[in-house]
Design a protein around this nucleic acid. Structure first.
Length: 591
DNA sequence: ACAGATGTAG
């Protein structure tokens, strides 16, 4: 519903918009596209607009027509341009319209706002709001839903939620299902499932009742969290309310169940949806195929693919990529490569996922020459390596010690490739440390720390591990102590890394106190932690102190891995009295 | 609003 906004209401949103209004001038800094073109040719919209040039020349003809085409025609042109991702061009053409004194309306302005949001310039979007007021054009729910979506796209969750609350609280416009859906989606995708669920509950109480769309957003978020019980309960709830789940709802649930390997429940949902005459689509079959592949059951996956073809559902590029990854995971690169070639035979052009998957497969087999060759082929196919592609190949090169090549690829990435992400940084740092390039690692680490970009505990664990393994336990310890200041919580790998570091230096008391500390901090040790600490004590022949740990391990259902077991056997062989000190070893005597 | 590729402890 469209409703004008009084100045009072506008003032109410001013604090939020302050930075936006400050950047109002930005509106006028965009370069204009020059207006040239043929005049008087009739518009054949769909046929003519295939690229940016087409759009611009059509625009130029439109503005010279007499009478000038109606605003919906301009909107249609702009929407086509947005679908081609020519966001800034829409801004330029809008400015041409202004210069030519072509009257505009709320639809055009909303499209302009959306253009800025899609450019991740929601500040510019906000700076347009005074323009609505000046021109007497009313804001509507689309305006604000678009702004909220823009803020979410920029990861500005707080402002997005604040704006939504303001819109509701101050009755700026009546939120509709789309606006609720936008907020719930934004919350879900940023991991705030519970907040999305609360909003769903709020909708249930209010006038705008949620439909299958809103339920599906929350169900999907719950599934992605692995909270399948809650997801299934929510589905049952919506059924009881008379809102039948659709194919998307079933898709989310089936994907979640496949990822947890709960095949019986997958089967149940499958028959349930077919009974409701909802037939699985290529997405759903691909989820099942992926689940099977990840469990190593590629044959079963191929059977599902045959089944779907029989049912008239054609596999697409994602289906083939998933099967290819399945073979890669089993190390069957020849088979993976065969799937790649079959795809091409079927005129399904490999995409960057196909290449990254296959490159990862070759890297894991340490066949770096093959991997590098594929990297070279990417551009020949008119594709660009993604950040993931680079991360994969960098990891592979470092792993086999091809430092020079790794540095070369990294330099190429920095120079001409996609933006490195936290994985890239972790991979390169880990590579430097493993190759003993501590200086280079630390200088990169310091540089990254100064930038204060997004970071995570995995990244720091790489640094701690690198320092510990290179004999810099003191430095590692001071980085570790700093973690809470950065707002990062050590996880089981972080603690295990530190414990390994202490054990390496024979500092068993420190290792032991770190073990207690992690427990106290609500991060219980796992299998690996115990293995590390036991090996540490074994290597220092501190047999008697091991007893406690072995009891704890047994209580928690952990067992030895092959290498710890072997170590134990050798110790017992050389020193049979160990058996008397550690009664638990009797049961392990079979080694 | 449903599907695919990358990094950290042993």
């Amino acid at each position: 519903m469209a409703r004008g906004l009084s100045l009072r209401k506008y003032n109410a949103i001013i604090p939020l918009l302050s930075s936006a209004v400050r950047s109002y001038c930005l509106l006028h800094t965009h370069k204009s596209i020059s207006v040239k073109g043929k005049i008087g040719v009739p518009i054949n919209f769909d046929k003519e607009v295939k690229c940016l040039d087409d759009a611009v020349s059509l625009f130029n003809r439109m503005v010279r027509m007499k009478p000038i085409p109606s605003l919906p025609v301009f909107c249609k042109l702009f929407k086509t341009m947005l679908s081609m991702k020519h966001y800034s061009a829409v801004v330029s053409l809008f400015q041409e319209m202004r210069k030519l004194d072509i009257p505009i309306n709320d639809f055009v302005l909303n499209i302009l706002i959306n253009s800025y949001c899609l450019m991740h310039r929601s500040d510019c979007s906000f700076s347009l709001l005074p323009f609505y007021l000046k021109s007497g054009i009313p804001f509507n729910v689309v305006t604000f839903a678009t702004l909220i979506r823009g803020l979410f796209a920029e990861h500005n969750l707080n402002d997005a939620v604040e704006l939504f609350k303001k819109v509701v609280r101050e009755n700026i416009c009546e939120p509709n299902v789309v606006m609720y859906g936008t907020v719930m989606n934004g919350l879900s995708r940023r991991g705030h499932t519970q907040k999305a669920l609360s909003l769903l509950r709020l909708m249930e109480q209010g006038n705008t009742k949620p439909d299958v769309y809103e339920y599906s957003i929350v169900i999907d978020a719950l599934c992605k969290d692995g909270n399948l019980d809650a997801a299934i309960n929510l589905m049952n709830e919506m059924k009881q309310k008379g809102i039948p789940p659709d194919i998307v709802t079933y898709g989310s649930l089936i994907d979640g169940l496949c990822k947890l390997g709960q095949w019986e429940k997958v089967r149940t949902l499958f028959s349930e949806m077919v009974n409701l005459n909802i037939y699985p689509d290529v997405c759903i079959f691909t989820m099942v195929i992926d689940g099977l592949c990840k469990e190593g059951k590629v044959e079963a996956a191929e059977e599902v693919m045959e089944h779907m073809i029989k049912k008239g559902v054609e596999p697409n590029i994602i289906t083939y990529n998933v099967i290819m990854d399945g073979y890669c995971l089993r190390g069957q690169l020849d088979r993976a490569r065969r799937i790649f070639d079959i795809m091409i035979d079927k005129c399904i052009e490999p995409d960057i996922f196909s290449y990254s998957t296959l490159i990862n497969g070759y890297c894991k087999k340490k066949k770096l020459a093959k991997a590098m060759q594929l990297l070279g082929e990417i551009s020949q196919r008119g594709l660009k390596p993604s950040t993931v592609t680079y991360n994969t190949i960098l990891h592979g090169l470092f792993e086999v010690g091809r430092i020079g090549d790794a540095k070369g690829v990294y330099a190429e990435m920095l120079y001409a490739g996609p933006k490195p992400n936290i994985c890239t940084h972790s991979t390169v740092l880990d590579g430097y440390f493993r190759c003993g390039l501590v200086e280079e690692a630390m200088s990169l680490f310091n540089k990254l720390e100064r930038k204060r970009e997004n970071t995570n505990i995995a990244f720091y664990t790489v640094v701690l591990n690198g320092l510990c393994k290179n004999g810099k336990l003191d430095e590692a310890h001071s980085v570790f102590e700093k973690l809470s200041l950065i707002g990062l919580t050590p996880d089981v790998r972080t603690y295990t890394t530190m414990i390994t570091g202490f054990c390496l230096q024979g500092l068993l008391d420190e290792a032991k106190s770190m073990l207690r500390k992690m427990e106290d901090n609500g991060c219980p040790p796992n299998n690996v932690t115990y293995r590390v600490i036991l090996q540490g004590f074994l290597r220092c022949s501190k047999f008697s102190e091991m007893e406690t740990f072995m009891k704890e391990m047994a209580d928690r259902g952990f067992s030895f891995d092959a290498s710890t077991a072997e170590l134990l056997v050798n110790i017992v062989r050389e020193n049979p009295s160990v058996l008397d000190i550690i009664p638990e070893l009797h049961s392990k005597n079979k080694y």
